[in-house]
């Protein structure tokens, strides 16, 4: 869910899906990637993943990859999706910088 009309923060789910698809993956591998990278903190329901993938396909941030015939569908991030992910990284860096300045260094 967007938390700002204009601000352009990605949801965590969206961002992780984009990151997972820097190398082509099918749905199950995306789920595994997210679970591993977050050490099980973020668990994605299959229905939610399905909806998120379709929304990203529609936006053109990811695209189907390879031969889908008879095999599990694979997806890959598009140049537009990469651009969004990179912008999000910058936003998070700026946020982390502000937070570190105020909260101080946390190891």
């Amino acid at each position: 869910m967007r938390d700002n009309v204009k601000g352009g923060a990605l949801t965590e789910v969206t961002f992780y899906i984009l990151l997972s698809l820097y190398t082509p993956k099918h749905g199950y591998a995306v789920m595994q990637f997210i679970e591993e990278e977050t050490h099980g903190r973020l668990e994605l329901g299959a229905g939610t993943l399905y909806g998120a993938l379709n929304a990203l396909l529609e936006k053109g941030w990811i695209a189907p990859w390879g031969e889908a015939e008879g095999r599990k569908k694979e997806y890959r991030v598009t140049p537009l999706g990469r651009e969004r992910a990179e912008r999000e990284l910058q936003r998070l860096r700026a946020l982390a910088e502000t937070a570190s300045r105020i909260i101080g260094g946390v190891t």
């Binding site: 668990e43 329901g45 939610t48």
Partner: peptide
């Protein structure tokens, strides 16, 4: 846990 839908929006 077996949940198909894990975001509020969904």
């Amino acid at each position: 846990p077996f949940e198909l839908h894990t975001t509020y929006e969904d």
